[in-house]
């Protein structure tokens, strides 16, 4: 699976209601793919904090737009950081 990922674009509103409402959804781009980042460090707390929700859950890929590979890297980095108490497991 090499090459630029342009194919999986967000389609224009396909189902009914196309006449009335047109949704302009900004296309989500994986930040790490765009910036050519190949390793996500568990010590980079500032970066990882952007990928945890208020309750300290990991931000889903559906929202962040991360590519699967980079989401996996974020995931392991967050889990490592949690073990070292750099990031919380939960907040109340």
């Amino acid at each position: 699976m090499a090459g630029p990922r342009g194919g999986r674009g967000r389609k224009a509103p396909a189902k009914g209601g196309a006449k009335k409402r047109t949704f302009f959804r900004r296309r989500k781009v994986c930040r790490f793919t765009a910036e050519n980042i190949e390793y996500i460090d568990y010590k980079d707390v500032k970066l990882l904090q952007q990928y945890i929700l208020e309750r300290a859950k990991i931000l889903p890929r559906r929202i962040s737009g991360n590519s699967a590979r980079h989401q996996r890297m974020v995931q392991t980095a967050i889990k490592r950081a949690r073990h070292l108490a750099l990031l919380p497991f939960s907040t109340d």
């Binding site: 190949e38 390793y39 568990y42 490592r80 073990h83 108490a85």
Partner: peptide, 19 residues
């Protein structure tokens, strides 16, 4: 209190190959 060992040479190798 806590410790963590991570092997990094494979990740570094992969990163440089992909770059």
């Amino acid at each position: 209190l806590r410790y963590l060992t991570v092997r990094t040479d494979l990740d570094i190798k992969r990163a440089t190959n992909r770059a």
